[in-house]
């Protein structure tokens, strides 16, 4: 059954995250007649008006002082507690840093299933939710379902589904009871938050992306950055670049465990083409790849390939592009 679908709407800097609209678009598409509820956790300032006009049928607010700043324990308890009280057929949560942390704990509390990092959703012949997600680093796609427990929970990769504006539906606003948080002590306390310098051009919003992998020597990363600047592109990178310490954070990391991008143009340097990376960039428009290994997997998902040294090719491109 898939008559009631709840979507956890993440709020970043007071605005509803794009992932909510992507999940709403997909949920509406796969089950137009379902009642869709937007669930929002936080303190006093929730973006209720934005959610009311988003195309959901209902908005449920869970407000508590303990939900003001992100604490995984309180958020997990709130998510599970509210869902248990309303008992929807399915719950969609963004596979973001927060969603990926609180959805599993909530599923454990609810004793129900959860499919991770879904890249496609559908309706099974029996009416239940079909959840498609990469497995073995994206080598295979698995189809998952949750036959015997409710709700059916899925975490959904942000940036994969299109976001199509929906007609407002005059959504009712419900204030959920989360007073069970009053007496709870999480054992987790936020002691510091350091905001990273925001990128001028976030990699998942850029029309062009220059991407670097381990085949790019550390001293050539700046050349790739310069090329990106010349092209008005964002600089992206693979997971190993972060794991090896060449990149300081995951903000522009492309792949199943990072950002999913769909730029018009993707130019990759020194990228082997692991499934884990390819899953995050396969829907790009034009894909051009440079690698000194003629058999690099990335060439299988590229429109153009250049078998060349990444550093030398960056030099030449910097010269050739005015």
């Amino acid at each position: 059954m898939l008559n009631t679908i709840w979507i956890l709407a993440e709020v970043n800097d007071g605005a509803v995250a794009s992932s909510y609209y992507e999940m709403l678009t997909k949920a509406r598409a796969i089950k137009p007649e379902a009642k869709i509820t937007a669930l929002c956790l936080g303190g006093d300032n929730l973006p209720v008006d934005e959610l009311k006009g988003s195309g959901a049928d209902e908005v449920v607010c869970a407000r508590h002082a303990k939900l003001e700043s992100y604490d995984p324990m309180y958020c997990t308890a709130a998510l599970a507690g509210v869902i248990a009280a309303y008992d929807p057929d399915a719950v969609l949560v963004a596979a973001s840093a927060k969603g990926s942390e609180i959805a599993p704990g909530a599923a454990a509390r609810l004793r129900t299933g959860l499919a991770a990092h879904c890249t496609e959703l559908g309706v099974r012949p029996d009416g239940d939710l079909a959840m498609i997600a990469p497995a073995f680093g994206g080598k295979l796609m698995g189809e998952y379902y949750i036959p015997n427990t409710r709700p059916q929970m899925a975490s959904v990769k942000p940036g994969v589904f299109d976001r199509v504006p929906q007609e407002p539906r005059g959504a009712a606003v419900v204030e959920a009871d989360v007073s069970f948080l009053d007496g709870m002590s999480s054992g987790v306390e936020l002691v510091e938050r350091k905001v990273s310098e925001a990128a001028d051009l976030p990699v998942d919003k850029a029309e062009s992306v220059v991407c670097v992998g381990l085949g790019v020597a550390e001293e050539n990363i700046e050349k790739a950055r310069a090329l990106a600047k010349k092209l008005g592109a964002a600089l992206g990178y693979t997971r190993p670049m972060v794991d090896m310490g060449y990149m300081s954070d995951e903000s522009a990391m492309i792949g199943t465990s990072g950002k999913t991008i769909k730029p018009k143009l993707y130019i990759g340097f020194g990228i082997s083409g692991s499934n884990q990376h390819v899953c995050g960039m396969k829907d790009s428009g034009l894909v051009i790849s440079v690698n000194n290994n003629p058999k690099a997997e990335i060439f299988n998902v590229s429109d153009y390939k250049l078998v060349a040294d990444s550093g030398k090719m960056l030099d030449e491109l910097l010269k050739a592009i005015s």
Partner: peptide
């Protein structure tokens, strides 16, 4: 296990790839 796998299929994102050859310039 509440989450069950229905089955797997090979992920295929292949494109026809054109090689650009010649000197680096």
């Amino acid at each position: 296990s509440p989450t069950q796998a229905e089955g797997y299929h090979e992920a295929s994102f292949g494109r026809e790839c054109v090689e650009i050859e010649g000197s680096e310039a």
